[in-house]
Design a protein around this nucleic acid. Structure first.
Lengths: 145, 145
DNA sequence: GAAGAACTTAGATTAAATCTAATCTGATAA
DNA sequence: TTATCAGATTAGATTTAATCTAAGTTCTTC
């Protein structure tokens, strides 16, 4: 994705394209490894010290609200962020907390009785286990589901 | 579930049945509304001041490790806890952060190519939207998926 | 009942994220 | 062009959630 497209997608989300916001969005598009807010701040701030920690957090919040970025909460660890591109599911490593993409496939929606008066807006499938890096060292913990 | 069964399930999980641990587990079994660690601490400590905050957290950690309790991380909020009973999915309210159960139904597992060298141990389906309490007040935000 | 393991505790500490209040920027209007 | 003002940014303080520390207590086993 080139600079113009990034700018366009920010504006489509109702957000001005400021240098700091652009840097956060561009970083997420270039680094699909689900960085934490701190990692994003450190990288963006290293490249251009005009972007503070508060601004990184503010912009991540705005990007999530605008639907351009997805936030993935991980038990006992910092949240991770993901520029929304193609639909996909997530795999979370029980050992190191890494978040990885799993190719998307359709999941049936729940019965309307189960949903009751709730309004469904999104559905995500999260797989857990050991990532390729952790699996060989902890094979005994493996349990197929 | 009666006291004897709680004791038995703790011991099956390799945990001694102490008064504090019993109180945490019993509270979760009696309150299926996915309380936070702080809520559990406050309730358990009010009923019996012998259970400190550190002990509540220690015991929740041990119960999760023993597979008796599930921890649900929620973006931007405290984690919520859930005594594992029947299999079920979760619904998380975008507005108030409430976590609710959705009746379980089988979800197909991903293609082994998509999984690569990862070791799959668990799979959870999370629905997001507005809970029954929040939906009427925010109908305009509703988008069917 | 001695010894060691498991457990609990108050309070300090850390990590993650948010808030505050001041300042800066840039779009629009006069 | 200049004035205005909402939007954006900032350093640093604060809050929140959770964990750690070091000491004491309670089981379990021998």
């Amino acid at each position: 994705m080139d600079a113009r497209e990034v700018k366009q997608s920010l504006e489509d989300g109702g957000l001005r394209c400021t240098p700091q916001r652009y840097a956060v969005m561009a970083f997420l598009l270039e680094h699909a490894g689900h960085p934490t807010a701190s990692e994003i701040f450190e990288a963006v701030n290293r490249a251009d010290p005009r972007c503070s920690r508060a601004t990184t957090y503010n912009n991540l919040r705005d990007l999530v609200r605008a639907g351009l970025v997805r936030e993935v909460a991980v038990e006992g660890r910092a949240a991770r962020f993901d520029a929304k591109s193609e639909r996909h599911h997530h795999f979370i490593c029980d050992r190191c907390g890494a978040v990885e993409d799993i190719a998307w496939y359709k999941v049936p929606r729940p019965d309307s009785r189960a949903l009751g008066k709730r309004v469904l807006r999104d559905c995500e499938l999260i797989f857990r286990g050991l990532c390729a890096r952790c699996a060989p060292r902890h094979a005994s913990r493996a349990v197929r589901v």
